[in-house]
Amino acid sequence: MGFDKFGRKSFTGVTKTAKFVDLLAEGKIEGTVCKQCGAKYFPPRSDCAACLSKDMEWFEMPKKGTLETFTIAYYAPFGFEKDCPYTMGVADFSDNLKLFARLAGDIKPEDVKVGMNVSIRPLKYDDGQMSFEITKA
């Protein structure tokens, strides 16, 4: 799939990391790891800034993390208005790996707390767009 399939609405269609969307369709949320120096990246990158290698492979993101922070958006940019309000946050998996995403719609805003245990899962929208979301652990 092209990268235009990524997210609620994609802003760019072409990247060497477009396989990320195919992996989402297979139920996997993956970052990239440098085969030369072992640096791990999420979101995935096709090039390693640590050692300038282009030799990268995919690895599956951990599932257990904590919610480092979050916000509830009551206004949205163009194209996202119908989703309001929605919660977005940063999940921390330690090992220098974090992930930014929306929180699953079934989590009530008042139940969201900094430091709560969270997990992540792929998400397919009705229009076929692929994404991922943060869920309650």
């Binding site: 990268f3 990524f6 997210g7 609620r8 609405k9 994609s10 802003f11 760019t12 990247t15 979101p43 922070t69 979050f70 916000t71 958006a73 206004y75 949205a76 940019p77 163009f78 194209g79 996202f80 989703d83 929605y86 977005m88 946050g89 940063v90 930014f100 995403a101 929306r102 900094v114 994404s131």
Partner: peptide, 28 residues
């Protein structure tokens, strides 16, 4: 339209981000 493209358009804008939300992450 531009509000939605204020930061990383590849990996974050697809979630519906904008400036106040980013600063709100820090505030929270």
């Amino acid at each position: 339209e531009r509000m939605g493209r204020g930061a990383d358009i590849q990996w974050e804008a697809p979630f519906g981000t904008m400036m106040p939300a980013y600063y709100a992450l820090y505030a929270q």
